[in-house]
Design a binder for these strands. Sequence first.
DNA 1: TCAACATGAGACATAGGTGTATCATTTTTT
DNA 2: AAAAAATGATACACCTATGTCTCATGTTGA
Lengths: 188, 188
Amino acid sequence: MIHLCLMLKKSEAKIIEAGFSVFSANPTATLADVAKEAGVGRATLHRHYAGREDLMAALAVVAMQELDDAIEAATEDAPSYTEALRLSLEVIIPLADRQMFLANEPLDHVPEVLEAYTQQLEETAEAVDAAKEEGGFDADVPTAWIVQAIETLTYAAWTVVRDGDATPEEAAALAWRTLQSGLTGGAK
Amino acid sequence: MIHLCLMLKKSEAKIIEAGFSVFSANPTATLADVAKEAGVGRATLHRHYAGREDLMAALAVVAMQELDDAIEAATEDAPSYTEALRLSLEVIIPLADRQMFLANEPLDHVPEVLEAYTQQLEETAEAVDAAKEEGGFDADVPTAWIVQAIETLTYAAWTVVRDGDATPEEAAALAWRTLQSGLTGGAK
DNA sequence: TCAACATGAGACATAGGTGTATCATTTTTT
DNA sequence: AAAAAATGATACACCTATGTCTCATGTTGA
């Protein structure tokens, strides 16, 4: 909401924030619910976003942008690709609740979102490949698996944080340890 | 469908199978879609299942039962709890597409499903605790995290299989390795 | 064969979310 | 202060999924 105000009008910012809040709690919530949460008339919502799809797409764009910014800020002076991946993991967890509800939305029809998403995946894959050369990951393990493991363990970390079973820092540490050395006692 | 016929009438079995098929592809599909896929009139579907919630609950019950059966069959003569967890992981992956679409359904209102699900989680947690004592997992790692990691890595495995990036056996092996020893080169 | 039952097809009513238009009011800008 | 823009509230029409009902047809079992 802070930096959103720089580019979005006041009502739009309120609607976007309400969208994150409401749809995170209930992905099938009504546009009326969003408008109410935003303290805005339903008609006003329609003035800014033509329909549900438009709003979802806007939410996706904002979420992607936030993610990109956070990752770039966290990794810009990382000493290695491996460390950059670890730092990314740490940074993503607190933002995950703004992304997760979008995962089940059919956003493939919005080229802007699709493009950003595939690029995100590609960048991760590139970072993983680079980390492999550093010895951070075993070259024998398929990159596709490592990327998927990073994504799902990020989700796992977000879940345990949400359930109050760990702090974001603890969850990030557990996720990274799982990725790197696994959970066996001997591998400590 | 094979053993379902033992307890479900023909139409019911067809509807249930169609439900898995249709809702896996599109979680917001219509009851009419399910009826069509089942080769059954929409009215017939309503005769057997009062509404969408009823159908979803029935699907959840069947899916849970299948999971229980598969896990029990796979682990009944496992040499250890750790090995039992590995075998469970292997067995769940091919069944995962019958479960995943249910994850985003609000089934908490169906006590039968809720109870079966929580029991499933408890059994996993118990197996993890037992595996800890065997040395299969580090006792320092919270059980809640291990359980969550197992779940999400199972999902990851299902995903790569679905995308054609690995066979079920390969995916299971990757998931288990990730859990146990991680993906670092040195941990091979 | 006959009776009981299940099914398919269609008509019908309903409810809820969605999108639009209008108008008075408020806020912002000039 | 005056003009312009944004907003809230309301009413309206629309569409789709849903659920119910009926009746003719088909299937099953006695």
